[in-house]
């Protein structure tokens, strides 16, 4: 009985978290913000469902498979997100005018910008691509 309730609660919470990932993916304004939604609630949602499956089938074979899926998910999602984020920044997909502080721009530019002034325009490597002004 308790197991049934726990399974149901975890499945619902997981599906809700997955839905919030989808909502964030569609509604947030720029790529990096959307990646926040794509990494965190998505991982929480999947882990919740994994917990539910583990409670439903408490046998060794199932638990080990679930552990492996969770381990892979927790280690590969940050790596993929890091690669995409890096590519996004370096191909100019980050709208610089929406950044309050941008220390990566200073670290990447060959000539350090003068102290005090903050480069507010586009970076040197933004390649002339338009920022995400679609919708």
């Amino acid at each position: 009985m308790i197991a049934t309730v726990l399974t149901g609660a975890c499945v619902l919470a997981g599906a809700g978290a997955a839905l919030s990932a989808g909502l964030g993916l569609l509604r947030l304004p720029d790529l990096l913000s959307r990646m926040h939604a794509a990494t965190k609630p998505q991982a929480v949602g999947l882990l919740m469902v994994l917990v539910a499956v583990g409670v439903r089938f408490p046998t060794g074979g199932v638990i080990t498979t679930l552990l492996l899926v969770a381990l892979l998910q927790l280690t590969t999602v940050p790596i993929a997100a890091h690669m995409v984020g890096r590519a996004a920044y370096r191909t100019g997909r980050v709208p610089r005018h929406l950044l309050y502080v941008d220390e990566l721009d200073e670290a990447l530019s060959p000539v350090p910008p003068g102290a005090g002034e903050r480069p507010s325009g586009r970076g040197p490597d933004s390649g002339g691509e338009e920022p995400d002004a679609e919708h």
Binding site: V11, G14, A15, A18, A21, G22, L25, L31, R34, M35, A37, A38, Q42, A43, G45, L46, V49, L50, A52, V53, V69, Q73, V77, A80, V84, A87, A88, T91, R93, D132
Partner: peptide, 21 residues
């Protein structure tokens, strides 16, 4: 952009995995 699509695809795959659960 392609990167937006890559991110969306990752979320889609994770949702499919949750659906399999």
């Amino acid at each position: 952009s392609m990167l937006d699509r890559a991110v969306a695809l990752d979320v889609l795959v994770a949702t499919m995995m949750a659906g399999l659960g």
